[in-house]
Computed example of a mutant assay.
Amino acid sequence: MNEPEAVDDLIADLPEWATTEEIADTMRVKPQTVLKWNKEYGLKTVAVGTRVRRYRKKDFREFLLRSAEATD
């Protein structure tokens, strides 16, 4: 399991509702990777229309905390 304090430090500058690009920048991955996390690994998102997605900061935090468990 990832340490909650480390995760909190990592996402400290994210807004409460982040874009795909903001999540990708934070994690230093491509936006396509974030979309894959949504589709294949259950990262929660809220869709506004067909092109706009937002990720709630608390949901992203939970995803990061759980993601280490999947690789253990």
Rank of each mutant, 00 (worst) to 15 (best):
D8A: 15
D9A: 13
L64M: 14
A6K: 14
A47S: 10
K58C: 09
L65R: 02
D8K: 13
P15E: 08
T71F: 00
V34F: 08
G42T: 05
E16T: 14
L64I: 12
P31C: 01
K58I: 13
L65E: 01
R51D: 04
L65I: 07
R56T: 05
M27R: 14
L43N: 08
K57H: 09
D8I: 06
S67W: 04
V34T: 02
K30H: 15
T26Y: 10
A24Q: 03
K57V: 06
N2P: 09
P4M: 06
R56I: 03
L10Q: 09
A68H: 03
V52E: 09
F60Y: 13
K30W: 08
E5S: 13
W37L: 01
R66Q: 14
G49V: 00
T33L: 02
A70S: 11
M1E: 08
L64Y: 04
Q32V: 10
D25W: 04
L43S: 09
E21Q: 14
M1W: 04
M1F: 01
R66S: 11
G49S: 04
L43E: 03
N38W: 06
I11M: 11
V7I: 15
K57P: 07
V46E: 03
P15C: 01
R66I: 00
T26K: 08
L43Q: 04
V52F: 11
Y41H: 15
D9R: 15
R51Q: 08
E22F: 05
Y41C: 07
D25Y: 06
V46K: 10
Q32D: 12
K36M: 07
P31R: 01
E40S: 10
D13W: 09
Y55S: 07
L35V: 12
M1L: 06
A18K: 04
K44I: 09
E3A: 09
I23E: 12
L64P: 05
E3G: 03
K36E: 04
P31F: 10
R61M: 07
W37C: 01
S67Q: 08
D25M: 02
F63G: 07
E3M: 08
I11L: 12
A70Y: 06
V7L: 07
A70W: 03
E5V: 13
M27Q: 13
N38L: 10
G49D: 04
A12I: 11
S67C: 08
D9P: 00
K57C: 01
T71H: 02
V48C: 06
W17P: 02
T50F: 05
T50C: 00
W17K: 14
V29K: 03
N2G: 02
W17F: 12
V48K: 13
R53W: 08
L64G: 09
Y41K: 14
A68Q: 03
E22W: 10
R66A: 13
T26F: 11
A18H: 09
M27V: 02
V7N: 02
N38V: 11
V7W: 08
P4S: 11
K39T: 14
L35F: 10
E62D: 09
D8N: 15
R53K: 12
T33P: 01
L14I: 12
V34I: 03
P15N: 02
L65S: 02
E40V: 00
T19R: 02
R61I: 08
R28V: 06
Y55R: 02
V34P: 04
I23G: 05
A47I: 01
Y41A: 10
K30M: 11
E21A: 14
E21R: 13
Y41L: 09
R28P: 00
A6E: 14
V48N: 07
N2S: 10
V7D: 00
